[in-house]
Amino acid sequence: MLEGEEADDETSSTPLAHSHFSVRDLPRRHRFEEWRESISCVFEVEAASDVRQENFKASVDGHLLDTVMLAETSSRQQTWHRSPQRIAADGMDHYMIQLFSDGNMATDQGDNAGVSPKGGLVVFDLSREAKSATNDFTNVSLILPREMVAPFLQAPDDQHLRYLSPKEPLVRLLHNQIATLRSVAPDMTTAQAVEVVPHVAGLVSACLNGTVHGAHSTKAGIPLATITLVKKIIEARLGDNRLSPAEIARHAGVSRSRLYEIFESYGGVAKYIRTRRLRAVARQLADPALAHRPIYDVALACGFENAPAFARAFRTRFDQSPREYRENAKALRRVDLSRRDTVENYEAWLHQL
């Protein structure tokens, strides 16, 4: 056998990377704090004092399937927050799809309010803030990089906190595939994962595109293709401070009244554009490679002309000044780096997908 063939044979038989975290063997008084520190790589969690003290449990059992992470998590009743500061620090731009085999999750965020359906799925956009609460639960999470799925989605920015009903056949199909992946992952090899992952991503795209229940509502009679085109025009010209509803309508080939109808559920065209610009600024402020760039230069490049108006809008959106946001992101990165030598594998994986 040739040397290259031996290497290929070794790769084909290499099991998936596996990580297991549990607080079971810790003294009870330390369990919740250890859990909170571990899961802080993605979420900030809180629990009532009686839950913390009464035999608190938490575990994460994960496998790395090439560029996708699959993890089963079990824990007690608690609240979860993916905050703007956490998002700024970790820079994660992923979709997370969860199924609950025990217990459930609930959110109360305006249009995103809901409860995870039994036998269904919940979708998170990890670049967006999320607040939720769970009772005692076990769930399975499939986490995929945005670039693996977004190019194939009809509405890539409208997936956050979608509750997908098991009434939909594609939801049942994806639910069953995630559950099956979880059961066979311990026996899979890295070579098998490389073959499987593209098909998993394809099914995720098909499910999110083809599911009616749980889709964010749009005005009747407006083709999804039109909405997608309008959003792409806005995204491509976020840095152009001359961007106006009239310009957008002209380039999209729709009337201004139709344009306003499209964005009514977002609070209007101007609010949607401002929100997208603020998110673009936040991403750049959290980027260590741009730490030297003056804040107002970042804002200007993202379409903001007036410094005081930008500062007010940023504080309203993120509950902190742009400077505080940048400093908080820097501080959280330092904490992450200081723990890198002792971090459980699943925490490191989440930041390396």
Rank of each mutant, 00 (worst) to 15 (best):
A206Y: 03
A150N: 00
K131A: 01
S183H: 11
I143Q: 06
P166T: 14
T226V: 15
E147T: 04
L208S: 07
L181W: 15
V194E: 15
D125L: 03
A215K: 14
D125H: 04
G221Q: 02
S217N: 05
R172G: 06
V212H: 14
K219H: 10
H216Y: 10
M148N: 03
H216T: 05
P169Q: 10
A191L: 10
N209P: 02
T189R: 11
S217W: 08
K219N: 04
G210C: 08
G210Q: 12
E129H: 06
A193M: 10
L203H: 03
S183N: 09
H175T: 03
A130N: 07
D157L: 13
V194C: 01
T189H: 12
P223I: 03
T211E: 04
N209L: 03
H213K: 08
N176V: 04
A206R: 13
L161A: 00
R182C: 12
P169R: 13
T189F: 14
P169L: 12
Q159D: 02
R128I: 02
S217K: 10
F152S: 10
V171P: 07
I222H: 00
H199E: 15
P145C: 03
C207F: 05
A206S: 13
L208K: 02
P156G: 06
T180W: 15
A225C: 04
T134H: 15
L203Y: 02
H160T: 01
K167H: 11
D158E: 13
Q177I: 07
E168N: 09
I222N: 01
A201W: 02
M148F: 00
T134R: 09
T134E: 11
A150I: 01
H216F: 12
R146T: 01
A133Y: 02
A206T: 14
D157M: 11
L170G: 10
N139M: 12
R172K: 15
V200R: 08
S205L: 05
A150M: 01
M148H: 01
V123Y: 07
Q177F: 11
T190D: 10
R146Y: 14
V184M: 10
Q192V: 08
D158G: 03
A201I: 06
V171S: 08
P169G: 08
L170K: 14
K131M: 05
I178D: 14
V149S: 00
S132C: 05
A185S: 13
V149H: 01
T226L: 07
D157A: 10
S141C: 09
Q192A: 13
L153C: 06
I227L: 14
T180E: 15
R162P: 01
A193T: 06
D125N: 10
L164H: 02
K131S: 02
